[in-house]
């Protein structure tokens, strides 16, 4: 395991450094270094983004929050408007790892790592976030991620920022079921957003983590929910639909059977929390 390490201080230099083969981008390193250590990635060069000032920014616009590539989870959690404007993101990233991991880890890393268990990623799926790439393109998150560990990020390009649209959701919910309470990868995770109108659901978004090759938005259920009122019947139907839609696998963290039933059961949190429109 031997490689060079560079930390350019301009985006131009960053791009130049990436042009060499065997170069890997690193921000917090909390995914990359784990992979290097177990030999899954054999870099010749690691290019850190952390010294590039133009990637370290938070731009709070009226309709969206733009999170620069090197903003750590801790910085994001400390950013006061987050909890108010994007509470689902706040709740999701609050569960990432431990304080040490949150001090290093970033949303950008979570997105490019493209794990179906990514907690930040799940919130970004729900929020219809877009990914700003260094070639100027802005790509919806669901298009950007194409499989476990796979994205359509072109070679020698990098992510500049994540754009997160703001919207007035009346209900937000995130839950991660792990093998323990912290420093844990989800056995299954869920999030939903509800916008109400006249006592019924106007807009509904629901996503699951760790139950498919990517984070899974259940669009059929989302459409089904529109115009419905939240009652036991509704929850029961959604739960049944969830059971049919998720496709988990067996692994050390849990069996497919457990995960499937778990996903269906988690919908009942709506009743437990007396969710109403």
């Amino acid at each position: 395991m031997s490689f060079t390490f560079v930390a350019p201080d301009t985006e131009k230099e960053l791009k130049a450094q990436l042009s060499e083969a065997g170069s890997f981008l690193m921000t917090g390193g909390t995914d990359l270094l784990v992979k290097v250590r177990i030999g899954k990635i054999k870099p010749q060069k690691i290019v850190s983004t952390l010294k590039v000032p133009t990637l370290h920014f938070l731009e709070n616009k009226v309709d969206e929050l733009v999170v620069g590539a090197t903003i750590s989870y801790s910085e994001l959690l400390d950013f006061k408007p987050l909890k108010k404007d994007l509470p689902i993101l706040y709740d999701a990233i609050f569960t990432v790892g431990s304080p040490q991991i949150r001090n290093r880890g970033t949303l950008t890393g979570n997105v490019v790592n493209a794990s179906p268990a990514g907690d930040g990623l799940l919130a970004l799926y729900l929020l219809n976030a877009t990914v700003e790439v260094s070639d100027g393109s802005v790509i919806p998150i669901e298009k950007f991620v194409i499989g476990p560990g796979k994205t359509i990020l072109p070679e020698r390009e990098y992510v500049r920022a994540i754009h997160i649209p703001k919207y007035n959701w009346n209900v937000h919910y995130f839950e991660k079921v792990g093998q323990r309470n912290s420093m844990t990868i989800s056995v299954a995770s869920v999030g939903w957003l509800i916008r109400c109108r006249n006592g019924a659901i106007e807009k509904f978004r629901i996503a699951y983590g760790s139950v498919a090759p990517t984070v899974l938005r259940l669009k059929e259920i989302e459409r089904f929910a529109e115009g419905k009122t939240i009652d036991e019947n509704f929850v029961h139907t959604v739960s049944e639909m969830v059971k049919k839609s998720v496709k988990p696998i067996d692994d050390v963290r849990g069996s497919a059977k457990y995960r499937k039933t778990l996903c269906a059961n988690l919908v009942y949190r709506m009743i437990e929390r007396r969710t109403k429109c």
Binding site: V34, R180, S182, T184, I185
Partner: peptide, 10 residues
């Protein structure tokens, strides 16, 4: 990663 000992919050 796979062998879970209790963490602080447990």
């Amino acid at each position: 990663f796979t062998y879970k000992i209790p963490a602080r919050k447990d």
